[in-house]
Amino acid sequence: MRLATPSGFATEVFLLEKPDQTLLPEGAWTLVGDERLREAWTRAGMPEPEHALWVSVPEEEKRLRTVIPWLEHWARVPLHRDATVVALGGGVLTDLTGLAASLFLRGVAWQVWPTSLLAMADAALGGKTGADLAAGKNLVGAFHPPRRLVACTDFLTSLPERHLENGRWELIKTALIMGEMGWAMEMLQEGPVKFAWVERALAFKAGVVHRDPRESGERRLLNLGHTLGHALEAASGYQLLHGESVGLGLLGSCFLAEEQGLKSYPAGLLDLLARRLTHLAPLVAPWADCLPLLARDKKAVRAAHADGETAVTQIQCVLPRPGEPAVQRALPPQAWESAHARLLSTLHQEGVRA
């Protein structure tokens, strides 16, 4: 089915059960795909272009060095400006492929076929492409929207349970941004991820991205859970998956919102959040390791001292509210310290009860 998106939206969005080759580019195209999906792709009767790249890109290789050989390969083919690149894989691969497409010949068209729940729920839509630097996540990138997004739920059947749970957190994030308590509670219960949840999350994000394509205002709300989450992810040495880190960041954001005088979340929802996150407690880094990483956040605001040095004074933080849309507030990085402490305490208490 094709999802309804705002008029003039840059990306066509399709949510299907099985891959459909009629949705591939009509003209010249090539493929960058996760090598683990090659068999599933061909078994589904999908064509493989002559110069396809089947690659393995672990999280630690989300770097510029990874895309250089792809660009050289496209130049040798050669790939022309009217060709389309198809990205088949999870969020790391699709982010890098979109970045490579934005760089090659100053920008060629691309399609994204996300194969992880995390990518379907978040990374694949919105036109953000990126690579990591030693200083932090996604510090290099470009806005380069794909022409088409095709999410096929059949690809999710081979995912390990941990990776399905990883993607569920981005769906829960959407519910908390919207203030949809009932939807958040439903997704926090045990049970499989529902097709309708992905559809709703994609439709919501498409609307936000259309209204704010360059992330200058409303789109920043999509960073709920990411400010503390990115710091926790990096401080864990990336033992935490991205979605797991966002889940921890969501609980921390609930605590920070309360400390900032916003309405408290019901204990029942906080308990459900903590229960799904308890097993991650050993990977939550101490505050001293998180603070320097928070100061590197892309949303940080710096101020110059008299000696010419600059320091981070504030970060644009997203705070959830039960029953109402989330809000943004500029807060110093240190504002997260007590929320971090409460996060650790809550996870340990829940672990003892379990």
Rank of each mutant, 00 (worst) to 15 (best):
V85R: 03
R81E: 00
D307I: 09
P292N: 13
L224Y: 05
E233Q: 03
E244L: 09
A326C: 03
R106V: 00
S102W: 01
P47L: 01
H51Y: 12
E190W: 04
R302Y: 15
M187S: 03
G247I: 12
R219K: 06
A40R: 14
R342T: 14
C152W: 02
G268W: 10
L280Y: 10
F255M: 08
T278H: 11
H144P: 00
G249Y: 05
A300P: 00
L347Y: 01
T22E: 14
W41Y: 06
A131I: 12
L105P: 04
G90P: 12
V284A: 05
L176P: 04
V352E: 13
D297Y: 02
E60D: 13
G323D: 03
P49M: 10
L118A: 14
L248Y: 10
N138A: 03
L15P: 08
P333N: 10
G191A: 07
L343C: 08
L118K: 12
L149C: 07
A123D: 09
E324I: 06
Q334A: 15
L251W: 06
E165R: 15
M181H: 07
R81W: 08
W197Q: 13
I68V: 15
R342F: 04
F155Q: 03
L171W: 01
T30M: 10
D34S: 03
P19H: 11
V318Y: 01
G207D: 02
W336C: 07
A119G: 08
D154G: 07
G323I: 08
P146G: 07
G261I: 13
Q349W: 09
L176G: 04
T30Q: 13
D307T: 13
M120V: 07
A40N: 12
K173Q: 01
L24G: 10
T346H: 04
R200L: 05
V112E: 08
A330L: 15
M185I: 10
T346L: 11
T5P: 06
L79E: 01
G107S: 11
L23S: 10
K137F: 01
A40K: 11
E170A: 01
L176Q: 07
K298W: 02
A235C: 04
R81L: 01
L125P: 05
H279C: 09
Q189W: 00
L105Q: 15
L291M: 08
L221T: 02
T227Y: 00
G247K: 08
Q334C: 04
W336I: 07
E12S: 14
K137E: 04
C254F: 06
T174S: 15
V327C: 11
G98T: 07
D289Y: 05
L188V: 01
T157E: 15
G249H: 05
T115K: 08
H51R: 14
A123Y: 06
K18D: 11
W74Y: 05
Y238A: 05
P332H: 09
E233W: 02
V198H: 10
T346G: 02
R321F: 02
E324F: 11
V301Q: 14
R65I: 00
F143Q: 05
P282H: 11
E12R: 11
A267G: 09
G107Y: 09
S116W: 02
F143A: 05
A151M: 04
P320D: 00
G323F: 05
G217C: 07
S7I: 12
E215V: 11
P192H: 06
A10E: 12
A288D: 14
L272M: 13
G247F: 11
G308V: 00
D212W: 01
L16I: 01
Q239T: 12
L53I: 06
V318M: 00
A235G: 07
